[in-house]
């Protein structure tokens, strides 16, 4: 069966305080890395699906919480043979 590989990138919505991103942003200069800003920490879900058309619904229902997170679906090569 032909399946598609997909990556779902889930990010905290803009404007919502992201303490994780902030903590990383503050940690980097402490290690000597300067010039870093706008750090946000999200989630990556990798999956293989038979029907990529269902991905948006999967995101809305489970993978992301649309109230607090944005998601982006990235499809890559088919992995089936």
């Amino acid at each position: 069966m032909l399946t598609m590989k997909a990556q779902v990138l889930i990010r905290p919505k803009q404007g919502i305080l992201d303490p994780q991103g902030l903590a990383v942003e503050e940690a980097l200069p402490a290690l000597g890395f300067s010039g870093v800003s706008n750090v946000h920490v999200g989630r990556l879900v990798e999956l293989e699906v038979d029907d990529p058309a269902q991905l948006d619904a999967m995101c809305e229902k489970l993978l992301a919480n649309p109230l607090i997170e944005d998601f982006e679906v990235v499809l890559s090569d088919s992995s089936g043979a």
């Binding site: 919502i16 305080l17 303490p19 994780q20 903590a23 919480n65 109230l67 607090i68």
Partner: peptide
């Protein structure tokens, strides 16, 4: 909240 029976969402504490 996740089940949609209550409004809003619960996020990680600001102090992490």
């Amino acid at each position: 909240t996740e089940a949609g029976l209550l409004p809003g969402a619960l996020l990680p504490n600001t102090n992490l």
